[in-house]
């Protein structure tokens, strides 16, 4: 009997734990944003599972549980105000264009959930704006369009919460708790989420003194607890298929994701930049870790 320092997990078991770790975030999201969150997540999951089953023409491929996780992540990325066909389109395109065309599980270059989300984000941008009567514009939108003058006024804006964006900071906290659960189980390597968080916090810290009377970039705490920071750091950037497994590539990958997201938040067109940061980092992955690509020599 040999001992291993890592608890024994099956791929299916990993996905079950990921779903469990996502549940607090889902619960907090439903608490603040309304019960429609559940409907969006449900539609996403069902569409993803159905697409996988139809695409591979078997239910055997479903037993790894990755389709469920992909669907769940898409559902959590989308705002609850979205029309119900949007999660459907996102999930179908995520599984079909993000995963199956590459040859199924383990062969995809891009994170499937982010492929689906990016597609609907570009195709139907108006659908994806958080526009329920509860919050009005989100803090990230406020940051982008700068209706205020100084950092202090920004913090006092109604879209801002205690440290991050109103409501979203609690969702981020819940995702942080779920993510730490995965890190403690050693399903998720600790270095990758840490690099992502540092990747967004360090540029924010560098840009913090640069604000003047007319423009502010937001504090590191704000960026850590706004938008999809924690969800991305712990659940999306750590997708084993599309993230590196060696230490140094993990640091580079994570820092790249975090800082690109920061720059898109502050200078780009989109409110939150994580989706494009992830897709861009995925494209660089074969350079970071050449072993994951079977080169024909």
């Amino acid at each position: 009997m040999a001992v291993t320092d890592r608890p024994k997990f099956q791929t299916t078991g990993i996905m079950v734990h990921v779903v469990i770790a996502l549940l607090p975030g889902l619960g907090v999201g439903a608490w603040f944003l309304g019960h429609k969150v559940f409907l969006v997540v449900l539609v996403s999951i069902l569409a993803a599972v159905a697409t996988e089953a139809i695409g591979t023409r078997s239910v055997q491929t479903l037993r790894d549980g990755t389709a469920v996780v992909t669907g769940m992540l898409i559902g959590l990325c989308l705002p609850p105000s979205v029309a119900i066909w949007v999660p459907f389109v996102a999930s179908v395109s995520a599984i079909a264009l993000g995963k199956l065309v590459f040859g199924g599980l383990g062969k995809n270059l891009f994170n499937p959930a982010m492929v689906g989300y990016a597609l609907v984000l570009i195709a139907f941008p108006m659908q994806l704006v958080y526009l329920d009567g509860l919050t009005g514009a989100t803090a990230l939108d406020v940051l982008k369009h700068q209706e205020t003058e100084s950092l202090q006024q920004l913090i006092n804006h109604p879209a801002f919460g205690l440290v991050g964006a109103k409501h979203f900071e609690w969702m981020n906290l819940a995702f942080l708790v779920g993510g730490l659960y995965l890190v403690l189980l050693r399903i998720v390597p600790w270095l990758l989420p840490l690099s992502v968080l540092l990747g967004i916090a360090v540029p924010a810290l560098v840009f913090l003194p640069l604000y003047d009377a007319t423009y502010s970039f937001g504090s590191p705490w704000f960026h850590l607890f706004a938008g999809g920071t924690m969800l991305t750091a712990f659940f999306i950037a750590t997708d084993p298929v599309t993230s590196p497994s060696a230490k140094l590539p993990q640091i580079i990958y994570g820092f790249f994701v975090g800082s690109v997201a920061f720059f898109i938040r502050c200078f780009g067109t989109w409110a939150d930049g994580f989706v494009f940061a992830i897709l861009l980092a995925n494209a660089f992955l074969p350079l970071l870790e050449p072993k994951k690509v079977a080169l024909d020599n």
Partner: peptide
């Protein structure tokens, strides 16, 4: 066996 998900746990072990 399921497909390889490139988690790198074999390298680590």
């Amino acid at each position: 066996a399921l497909p390889c998900i490139h988690c790198g746990w074999c390298d680590e072990a």
